[in-house]
Design a protein around this nucleic acid. Sequence first.
DNA 1: CAAAGATTCAAACAAGTGTTTAAATCATTC
DNA 2: GAATGATTTAAACACTTGTTTGAATCTTTG
Lengths: 226, 226
Amino acid sequence: MSQAEMDQAEVVKSDTRTDTKQRILDAAEKLFAREGFHNTSLRAITGEAGANLAAVNYHFGSKEALLDKVIARRLLPLNELRRTRLLRVREESRLENRRPRVEETLRAFIEPTMEFRDSEPGADDFMSLIGRALSEPDDTVRKIFITHIKSIFYLLFETLCDALPEICRETIFWRLQFSMGALSHILRTVGKFELSHFPEGVNPLPDTDAMMAMLVPYLVQGMEVR
Amino acid sequence: MSQAEMDQAEVVKSDTRTDTKQRILDAAEKLFAREGFHNTSLRAITGEAGANLAAVNYHFGSKEALLDKVIARRLLPLNELRRTRLLRVREESRLENRRPRVEETLRAFIEPTMEFRDSEPGADDFMSLIGRALSEPDDTVRKIFITHIKSIFYLLFETLCDALPEICRETIFWRLQFSMGALSHILRTVGKFELSHFPEGVNPLPDTDAMMAMLVPYLVQGMEVR
DNA sequence: CAAAGATTCAAACAAGTGTTTAAATCATTC
DNA sequence: GAATGATTTAAACACTTGTTTGAATCTTTG
């Protein structure tokens, strides 16, 4: 019985963990992020992980199932952080009998992303991966990502609607799309610019705090127009 | 002598135009935009164009050279429109002894994009293509795109710096990055959303004017923060 | 018409893809 | 220590990729 079949049958993982699965997940995360899903071969992944070519199909079932695990492994815990913070924003505003504030709402979504990025090793690669997920031409990556992001996105959207009752839902939706575009663009490009592309007097690599200090006011202003 | 060699030698194109080149360019634009560069095979392109497989290598030299032509064919005229409008903004502000306005500067860059999109058939596919160009993991597409967009981007950046002298260049640069992220996100996703992803009460398909009416104020507010 | 050159065509090329298989090895349990 | 099941391994599978080739066809020119 293969590992993939065991997982599908929801059998509890064996107590003696082989770390081959982990090494493959790490290698896949890194390569998917840097080269893209379709430009990364299973041979490249297993080579990087020091595993046999057949290991991916044995442990995960297929390349696509591997991608799902790569995304779910980090996105599910991250979304729990986001959900906790968004619910706290909603609860606090309710207790204080006021509306949620746009800034704290956006921060509740974005800050866990950035903290996550700096905390776990390899998470920066993961951020590039999900930063690109929405713009992947291929259905594979996009659909898997949307599956895992959908509910938290709706919670963010509804909280913003509560924060901005005078603005119609449609306008808020599209402004949120603009914001997601800006955020994902930064997530996938920061640290990837080539020096030659910077005008003089521009620091190529602001740290996370400096980036947040520029990004959040930009997004808040855009959301609150009028 | 192949067509590609003739082009390389800068020989004048034969007066008897085969439209095979055009059909290949159109098919490639469509497929690159919808499936991505690496997910599109030459067989798919030549099949769509009703041409022989070898036609791409004969007329363009390679798949990569074809991509360059696909991008250059539309981006060079588009950038000329943008340059003309940006230079007019600069000239008018100079004559009136004032600074350029952020809104007219951004419009000078964005409006030609949108008008272009609606004018020529196939241009909507092209917009998806360049909307994704910056986020392609692979160097191929990104480098070709950057080559053709660099100078107009600098002109836009410098004009914004003139418009916002009280804000440091670095901040303006990153806000412009946020704006480019928002713009490219919209360019590549509009019309591609799945209905099921829209919260209720949100119109899935605003037209170009409605989108501009939401996007421009959003970007202007973000650029002008503080 | 005939020569010349541009274009198309079918076929093959070498290389790379994800997946499967069956034997070999390892780990655990009785 | 033998048996059982999980894991690893090398090899092959069927398929797709971009590119090249040399002959066939079309177009233009002399």
